[in-house]
Amino acid sequence: MNKVTDPMATDFRALDVLLRVYRLGSFTRAAEDLEMNQSVVSYTIDKLRGVFDDPLFVREARRLIATPRCEEVVTEAAELLERFSQLTATQDFDPKQSTETVTIACNYYERELIIPHLIHAIRAEAPKLRIEIVDSSYLGHDKLLRMEADLLIGPFVQLGAAFYARALYDDHYVCMMDPAHPMAKAALSMEEYLPLDHVYITYGGKWKSRYMQELERQGHEISIAIRTPSPAGIQTLIAGSELVATVPERLSRKLGQGLHIARCPVPTPVQIQMVWTARTHRSQMHQWVRDLVVRATRGV
């Protein structure tokens, strides 16, 4: 272990280097991002190892892995740097002049229904503000903690005191099928629903829809004919077939043109939320963006 270094010798630049290495998973990429020599990055991390009496990063199978102590330091350092940034920034956020970047993590549902309304609203009021949309998959909360996203939107729950959350609206599930489907003429019962030829959306196999969680809780299984990772293009699979897909009702308005939409016999609500952390909680810009998200979802 390195010789312990005086903590008071640590500056914000060193913490920023640590965050870049953590986020990018590479000394080389961090050096490129910071436009400095890799030797300076290595020297800075070596000094921080002495400050925190911890290796901070270890290599496993050519991957740079952060230690538990590093995870703790990064979380605190991110909040510290953000607060300092807010102290040194101008107090009044001017949407028309801001050239900052806001990164939003979400998935297909939100990109189809919410993001277009939000982008139009942002462009109208803050034309120079830059927006980056990243796929949240099932790692949305991790992306917030790793500072890979500023805001998470989707059917996620708040996970502990590290997060803030605000409910946007509730959705519910419906079944999409071809109008000529034998079951398109009457309301579906659970007994009729389960044996249908289902198109099951796996979301990459890492996240399970609420209706599937409820079916499992009740001890039921559906008959899965096709598995697909995303709702994209699902309407073309269903049209002219006896396949059935269970999707949120608001999404069916986008995907269900020409299809029959039936009530799903699994009465499970889907609550869409936005989630953020203390890093952006007090930021005027991010508060403004969150307020705009609330306004944008009123048109969904």
Rank of each mutant, 00 (worst) to 15 (best):
M212P: 02
E242C: 05
I226E: 05
P68I: 09
S241I: 07
E72R: 13
T268Q: 13
A78T: 01
I122W: 11
C264H: 07
I261N: 13
I104L: 04
H198W: 09
I222N: 14
Q287W: 12
E192G: 04
I272T: 05
N2W: 04
E132H: 09
K206D: 07
V294C: 05
Y203P: 03
I104C: 13
R217V: 06
A167Q: 14
E148M: 12
R63D: 08
Q257C: 12
R83Y: 03
I201D: 00
C70S: 11
G258I: 04
D170K: 14
A167Y: 09
D170G: 03
E32C: 04
Q287A: 00
K3L: 06
A89F: 06
P195K: 13
L129K: 03
S189L: 08
T101K: 15
L251I: 10
R217S: 07
V74Y: 00
W276S: 11
R227T: 07
V270W: 00
C70I: 02
S230N: 11
P269R: 02
V21R: 12
V102R: 01
L48A: 03
A14H: 02
Q235F: 05
R290G: 04
I234W: 00
L194M: 06
L144W: 09
L196V: 10
G299V: 06
D197R: 08
Q287R: 15
I104K: 03
G219S: 11
V266F: 03
T5F: 01
T67R: 12
K206P: 05
L145D: 05
E242I: 04
D33R: 04
D197S: 14
A167K: 07
M183E: 02
L243K: 14
H141D: 07
M183W: 12
I133K: 09
Y43H: 10
E221G: 10
L64C: 07
A61T: 06
M274Y: 00
L18A: 12
I224R: 05
L159T: 08
P269I: 15
V4Y: 10
R166C: 07
D170A: 13
S136C: 09
R146Q: 09
A245E: 00
K206F: 02
A89Y: 03
M36C: 14
S283T: 13
R282E: 15
A232G: 06
L129R: 05
R166G: 09
G219L: 06
N2D: 08
C175G: 01
L113G: 01
W276A: 14
T103Y: 12
E82Y: 02
L64G: 13
L215T: 00
A162K: 12
P55V: 15
I119F: 04
S136R: 07
E76H: 15
R130N: 12
V244E: 00
V73L: 08
K208V: 14
P231C: 06
T10P: 01
F12T: 05
